[in-house]
């Protein structure tokens, strides 16, 4: 099945690097449900810019470190 978004992210690895933060903990910090964090990690949902910035801030990273978009080919 094709993913509904081209945006990829490194949230899962960055969570683990961030003191082993769980999806539920990240979700609580950002103010979304755990299932939404899971959907974002799996590329099934592109978050709003605001939520994307909040995720990057909680993980202590820049937005472009957390989220990537493939270059035009």
């Amino acid at each position: 099945m094709t993913k509904p978004t081209k945006v990829t992210n490194s949230i899962c690895q960055m969570r683990l690097d961030h003191n082993g933060m769980t999806q539920a903990e990240l979700a609580k910090e950002v103010g979304v449900t755990r299932q939404t964090v899971n959907a974002i990690e799996q590329g099934k949902y592109s978050p709003s810019l605001e939520v994307a910035f909040q995720i990057a801030r909680v993980l202590g990273r820049d937005l472009t470190e957390v989220f990537q978009y493939p270059a035009e080919t």
């Binding site: 449900t33 939404t36 949902y45 978050p47």
Partner: peptide, 10 residues
């Protein structure tokens, strides 16, 4: 704990 929770994706 998740009762009636919703966010932007919902």
């Amino acid at each position: 704990s998740e009762a009636d929770s919703h966010d932007e994706r919902d």
